[in-house]
Amino acid sequence: MTKRALITGITGQDGSYLAEHLIREGYQVWGLMRGQANPHKMRVSRLVSELSFVDGDLMDQASLVSAVDLVQPDEVYNLGAISFVPMSWQQAELVTEVNAMGVLRMLEAIRMVSGLSNSRYATGKQIRFYQASSSEMFGKAAETPQRESTVFHPRSPYGVAKAYGHFITRNYRESFGMYAVGGILFNHESPRRGSEFVTRKISLGVARIKLGLQDKLALGNIDALRDWGFAGDYVRAMHLMLQQDRPGDYVVGTGRMHSVRDAMSAAFEHVGLDWRDHVYIDPALVRPAEVEILCADTTRVREELGWKPEVDFASLMRMMVDADLKHVATEHEYGDLLAAASW
């Protein structure tokens, strides 16, 4: 029988890549969306034409129960979150409601619908659950590289909320026998990444500088080290986690660190420019509590799931710059056409 999957966070980069991957695997896929008039719906539909949508909100328990009951999924992937870390200092309560309590609400919805409670929605169907945990939970890491057993020391409200989501997922697995896993994913990027994230900010800035539309690019801590990979690779790991005989948590990354400086160098070099001529440091962009070093120990995900990344860091940055060169050139040309028409 055709498997059915429900994805929260369908409008994000991971949601669209995961939907594409699952559809290629023969799944019927639904994306949870708050309001069918959501302006991002058309963009996602263009990327994934076979995708269906269902109403739901991670801040509304009843809507999640209704969505799970309607879709009757075999697998639920909870990718929905406010994922821009700096925002979590500005709106800590909102980030906690979505990134922490939203996980609990989805687990409760699955528990009710699958028959793990005395609910009128109960069907007795096992629903497998994936929680998008984050390397930001490690924060001020006790060891490098970080593995599944590394102690969490989050350094932002975002990381704290993600840690709660991770622990409550494990608790439901242990308390109710739910097939629930946490994927502790390290930084993963793509041309679909939001422009507020540093790698996309760099690729977009490089494209605009190369095309003569701006001259300078402001960044924060360029010495911060991250384990960066390609989002399209990481969604394969998400899927593999839910195909195992027994549920477990997995760290997913490349096992190699690069600095923001490395990202700048690769991006500017790709278009024949020197980043030192265009980048300046803006103190306002430095985090209140910085996470300096994050690097994954990928032993378990490689040995147990047979997963490994296919796109390396330099190729990822080139991919993003090339996509933004096309995006910016098209946008600029379209803007000129509009200006000419109005004139």
Results as ranks from 00 to 15, higher is better:
Phe186His: 15
Ser259Lys: 06
Pro309Ser: 00
Leu51Met: 06
Ser88Cys: 03
His258Cys: 01
Leu211Pro: 07
Gly183Asp: 11
Glu303Cys: 07
Ser203Ile: 06
Leu116Glu: 01
Arg34Pro: 01
Pro145Asp: 05
Val251Trp: 00
Leu285Cys: 05
Asp245Met: 08
Val48Ile: 11
Met320Ile: 07
Val235Cys: 03
Tyr77Ile: 05
Ala132Pro: 00
Arg128Met: 10
Leu338Glu: 11
Ala296Ile: 07
Glu148Trp: 07
Met137Leu: 08
Gly80Phe: 12
Pro157Val: 08
Ser134His: 05
Ala19Gln: 05
Tyr164Leu: 15
Lys326Val: 07
Met137Val: 15
Gly139Glu: 03
Ala218Phe: 04
Val68Asn: 01
Lys3Leu: 12
Tyr334Leu: 10
Arg256His: 14
Phe230Tyr: 15
Thr150Arg: 06
Phe84Leu: 11
Ala92Met: 12
Asp57His: 10
Gln244Arg: 15
Glu20Thr: 13
Ala323Gln: 02
Tyr158Phe: 14
Phe84Gln: 09
Tyr172Leu: 05
Val311Leu: 03
Trp228Phe: 15
Arg276Trp: 03
Trp30Thr: 00
Glu20Leu: 14
Met257Asp: 00
Arg46His: 13
Arg287Tyr: 12
Ser265Gln: 13
Arg193Pro: 00
His332Trp: 13
Gly183Trp: 09
Val103Ile: 10
Lys308Gln: 11
Ala37Asn: 12
Gly159Ile: 02
Pro283His: 09
Ala237His: 09
Ser195Met: 12
Arg246Met: 09
Arg43Gly: 11
Gln28Tyr: 02
Lys210Ser: 10
Leu94Ser: 08
Gln36Lys: 03
Tyr77Arg: 09
Arg46Asp: 11
Asn99Gln: 10
Gly335Cys: 02
Arg256Lys: 15
Ile209Met: 14
Gln91Leu: 13
Leu240His: 04
Ala263Gln: 04
Ala284Gly: 02
Phe84Val: 14
Gly9Ala: 11
Gln13Phe: 06
Lys326His: 08
Leu337Asn: 06
Asp233Phe: 08
Ala163Arg: 07
Gly253Asp: 07
Ala163Asp: 01
Asp297Ile: 02
Leu325Gly: 01
Asp74Arg: 12
Ala340Phe: 07
Ala284Val: 06
Asn78Thr: 04
Gly102Glu: 05
Val251Arg: 00
Asp262Leu: 01
Phe167Gly: 04
Met319Gly: 01
Thr96Leu: 11
Ala266Gly: 00
His270Lys: 13
Met137Arg: 12
Trp307Glu: 03
Met257Tyr: 02
Gln28Met: 10
Gly212Tyr: 09
Gln61Met: 08
Lys216Pro: 02
Leu6Phe: 07
Val44Thr: 12
Ala161Glu: 04
Arg287Glu: 15
Trp228Gln: 08
Ala296Asp: 01
Ala207His: 13
Ala341Arg: 13
Lys201Pro: 05
Leu6Gln: 02
Asp249Thr: 06
Ile222Ser: 03
Ser195Ile: 14
Lys326Cys: 05
Asp249Leu: 07
Lys41Trp: 03
Pro247Lys: 05
Gly26Val: 04
Lys162Gly: 12
Arg302Thr: 14
Ala289Met: 05
Cys295His: 01
